Simulated scan of single mutants.
Amino acid sequence: MTALHAEHLTRWCELDYRSEPEFRIQWASDPWMDRQAYALRRRVFCEEQALFVADDRDDIDRDEPTTRNLVALSCLAGQADELVGTVRIHRAAPGIWWGSRLAVHAGWRQHRKLGSSLIRLAVTSAHALGCEDFLAHVQDQNVPLFQRLNWQVLETKVLHGHPHALMRADLAHYPPCTTPYAGFVLTGGRPS
C-alpha cells in the first residue's frame, strides 16, 4: 500500500470517538425494549442489591393497560444501541400514578442526567394522562436526587429490608408530555 493510499484510508475512516454520547428517553415501544428493561431490573434489584430473590416482576408488571416501561437508550449514529436505564409507571387509581423500579446500568450510574431524565419523563407523561398525584417509594440513598427534582418526603418506611421514603412529585415542575413514545434526546454528560 502506498503512503498516499494509507493517508487517504486514514482520513476516510477516521471517526471522532470523543463526541458526547446521545440517549433517547422514551416509553418502551418494542418488545426487545421491555425484555431488556426487565433484564436490567433483575440485574440491579436481584443480583446487585438482593432486594428480590429471582425476579422483581410483580402484579403491576402484568397489568398492561395501566403500566408502562420507560427506557433510556444509548444511541449510535441516531439508532438505539443499548438499553442503559429504565423506570416503570402505573396508574393505581384515577388521577393517582406511581413510579417504581428506577434502574440504571452500573456502567452509566455516574452519568449526570440519565436517572433524572427517566424520572422527568415518568412524571410528565403521567401528567399528560391525567395524573393529579405522582408517588414513589424511593430508596434512602436516592432521596437527595428526588428532592433536587422537586419531590417531597411524605413518610419513611422499611421495604424489602431497606429504608425507603414515600415521596410525591410537585407536578408544577413537570409540564405534561404528550409524546412519550418519542420522548426526548439527551446529549452530553459523559459518565465520570
Results as ranks from 00 to 15, higher is better:
2 T>E: 12
3 A>G: 09
3 A>Y: 05
5 H>V: 13
6 A>M: 10
7 E>M: 05
7 E>R: 14
7 E>I: 02
13 C>V: 06
13 C>W: 08
14 E>C: 15
14 E>N: 13
15 L>M: 10
18 R>I: 04
18 R>E: 13
24 R>E: 02
24 R>T: 03
24 R>P: 01
26 Q>W: 02
28 A>K: 06
29 S>A: 12
29 S>M: 04
29 S>D: 14
29 S>N: 14
30 D>S: 12
30 D>N: 10
34 D>N: 13
37 A>P: 08
37 A>R: 07
38 Y>R: 11
38 Y>N: 05
40 L>H: 02
41 R>A: 04
41 R>P: 01
41 R>C: 05
42 R>Q: 13
42 R>A: 13
45 F>C: 04
48 E>T: 00
48 E>C: 00
49 Q>M: 15
50 A>H: 15
51 L>G: 00
53 V>N: 05
54 A>V: 06
54 A>C: 05
55 D>N: 15
55 D>E: 15
55 D>I: 11
57 R>D: 04
58 D>C: 08
59 D>R: 15
60 I>T: 14
60 I>C: 09
62 R>E: 11
63 D>Y: 09
65 P>A: 07
67 T>F: 13
67 T>R: 08
68 R>G: 00
71 V>Q: 02
72 A>V: 07
73 L>C: 08
76 L>G: 08
80 A>L: 03
81 D>M: 01
81 D>C: 04
83 L>D: 01
85 G>W: 05
86 T>S: 11
87 V>K: 00
87 V>T: 03
88 R>S: 01
90 H>L: 00
91 R>Q: 08
93 A>P: 08
96 I>M: 02
96 I>W: 00
99 G>Y: 03
100 S>N: 01
105 H>D: 14
105 H>S: 04
105 H>V: 00
106 A>Y: 03
107 G>K: 03
108 W>H: 13
108 W>M: 11
112 R>L: 13
112 R>E: 10
114 L>G: 07
115 G>Y: 03
115 G>M: 06
117 S>A: 15
117 S>V: 14
120 R>M: 00
123 V>Y: 06
127 H>S: 14
127 H>F: 05
131 C>S: 12
132 E>G: 15
133 D>R: 14
133 D>S: 12
134 F>N: 09
134 F>W: 05
136 A>R: 03
140 D>L: 07
141 Q>I: 09
141 Q>H: 14
142 N>D: 10
143 V>Q: 11
143 V>D: 09
144 P>C: 12
145 L>F: 09
145 L>K: 10
145 L>R: 09
146 F>K: 11
147 Q>E: 15
147 Q>K: 13
148 R>V: 12
148 R>M: 12
150 N>G: 06
151 W>D: 10
155 E>S: 15
158 V>P: 08
158 V>Y: 09
160 H>D: 09
160 H>C: 08
161 G>H: 06
162 H>R: 14
163 P>L: 11
163 P>D: 14
164 H>E: 11
167 M>P: 00
168 R>I: 07
169 A>S: 05
175 P>D: 03
176 P>L: 09
177 C>F: 00
183 G>I: 01
184 F>L: 03
186 L>T: 05
186 L>R: 04
186 L>E: 10
188 G>S: 12
189 G>Q: 06
